[in-house]
Amino acid sequence: MVLTSVLTLAGIGLILALILVAASLAFRVEEDPRVEAVLEALPGANCGGCGYAGCEAYAQAVLASPDVPANLCTVGGNDTATKVGEISGKTVTATEPMICFRRCSRHEGQVEHRYHYVGVNTCSAAAQLEGGPYMCSWSCLGYGDCMRACPFDAMVVRDDLIEVITSRCVACGCCISACPRGILQIIPQRARVMCFCATKEKMKNVADVCSVGCINCLQCVKACPAQAISYTNFRIEINHNACLAYGDKCGEACVASCSRKILRNMRVHGPAGLICTDEAASPQELGQEQKDDDATQEGTDAKASPLAAQETAPQGQPKE
């Protein structure tokens, strides 16, 4: 009986194994070995900065379609683009190194609180309450939605404002959609000028609440000889490609025309104050920030039940 059982099972197993071997030969699918090679070259962050679902999706697309350029990966930059170009046989034009930029200088403009926000510790929640806790409805809220969205830990909250660590930012764009205010923008690192305010309000409404708010007077739009500045979606947008292509010969006419000094020369004012450049906004400090954040998260979770709200209220307050 033992023998028959063992033999039967072994026999069935053997037959199945033979069928599977035959099937694996008969149904072999030729997979493009280059996909593997492209995947190897890509950073593997799966951030979606290229516009595809992940690194594998991009690898397949770049090999399958001749229209997909090889330099879409902002994370890897030029090195990766060159490698991907070599594998896929595409010519690579250099990628412009980009960076994330916060179009708000709330501290400088001395924007006051509209009310004291106590609640769920996210920007999106705060922004929904009466236009947000600040007098300006287009200011950075500083609760760090973008920081949580950033796959590269390139953002920190300091003094209630979000700051970008330039050495880590790869301009993937994950933070852009996380910001309920739309004040984060991906700009070229070489950008000559930038509008330091993202408000869509006009004139008095801006001037009353912020001393460095853009009143959308459109003087810069008129002043730019390259027509690189436009009034799009109710705020000033700069076409950096056109601006860079025109070059220095305009003498920064837009900066001169701006009565409120909000359009600034990036090379002079640089990222100073808005983007933290120092390499040493460093892991320790970053780690601390994140721990703080975790702690406040805890508080927020506990607040899911209204009873607990009162006990945890002090934690939820914005840091002053």
């Binding site: 069935i12 199945l16 194994a17 599977l20 099937a23 694996s24 008969a26 149904f27 699918v29």
Partner: peptide
């Protein structure tokens, strides 16, 4: 045994066909 083998087979079959 048979179900395990069958699933493997179906997987290969579907991948190709």
């Amino acid at each position: 045994l048979i179900i395990a083998g069958l699933v493997q087979f179906v997987e290969m079959f579907l991948k190709k066909i």
